[in-house]
Simulated assay, not measured.
Amino acid sequence: MTGGCQCSRIRYEVDAENDEAYLCHCRMCQRATGGVSIAFKNVPKASVRWTTQEPDYYASSPIARRGFCSACGTPLTFEYPDSDNMDLTVGSLDDPSGLKPKHNFGAEGLHEHWLNAADLPRYKAADYEPLKKRWEEKVGKVPD
């Protein structure tokens, strides 16, 4: 699998052994990402190859650090420095469609009403005329 940040300054390859991922709902992850949860893929650190450069890091607590791109702000990793494994953000993968959430972690911060949005109306970004017009004026098309 391959992935990276939004601006492509940081790119990686990873050998993923399975399709398992998980959602973390803890308050630290919520604050670090600005979301109600974050999707992670846990992998051995040795299976990750940074193909352009390593991410920038900050100590998000006394026991963990998070990797991110300081140019575009994309959250990329979570890790305990003393662990052989790390988490990659599912959203930073080029094609996250093969992964499936297997459990919820940090359930004390879980917001139930955000878990299942399957019955809500769905709108495609490319069909929203004000957004479509902005993209077409700037780059000629709506990005994939």
Rank of each mutant, 00 (worst) to 15 (best):
D82A: 12
K141Y: 07
V48L: 03
P143E: 05
Y80L: 12
H111P: 14
L110R: 15
V14I: 02
E20M: 14
Q53C: 12
M86Q: 08
T77L: 02
S70Y: 09
S47L: 06
R27T: 08
K141A: 05
S83N: 14
D19F: 06
S37H: 11
P130T: 04
E79P: 13
W135A: 11
G67K: 05
P130A: 13
E137D: 11
Q53R: 15
A71S: 15
A39E: 04
T33R: 10
E136S: 09
L115Y: 08
T2S: 06
I10H: 15
P130L: 09
K132N: 05
R66A: 08
A32W: 00
S92L: 08
N104W: 04
R11A: 09
W135N: 14
N18C: 12
P143F: 09
G106N: 08
R134D: 15
C29D: 04
D119H: 07
C7H: 10
Q53T: 02
K132A: 13
P121S: 13
D56K: 06
R122M: 10
S70D: 15
V142F: 06
R134G: 12
P130N: 05
K45N: 06
P44L: 13
T51R: 01
K133I: 04
K132S: 15
G34R: 10
R11V: 07
F78K: 13
R65N: 02
Y123P: 04
R49Y: 05
R66I: 04
R49S: 06
M1K: 08
A39P: 00
D119G: 15
Y123L: 10
S97V: 04
K133G: 05
S61W: 02
P44N: 11
P62N: 00
L76G: 02
G73L: 01
I38M: 14
W114P: 13
T77F: 01
A118I: 03
R134K: 09
E137I: 08
E79D: 03
S8A: 14
L93M: 07
F68N: 03
A107T: 15
Y12N: 09
P143D: 02
A118D: 15
P121Q: 08
I63R: 13
R66D: 00
G140E: 00
L99H: 07
D87W: 02
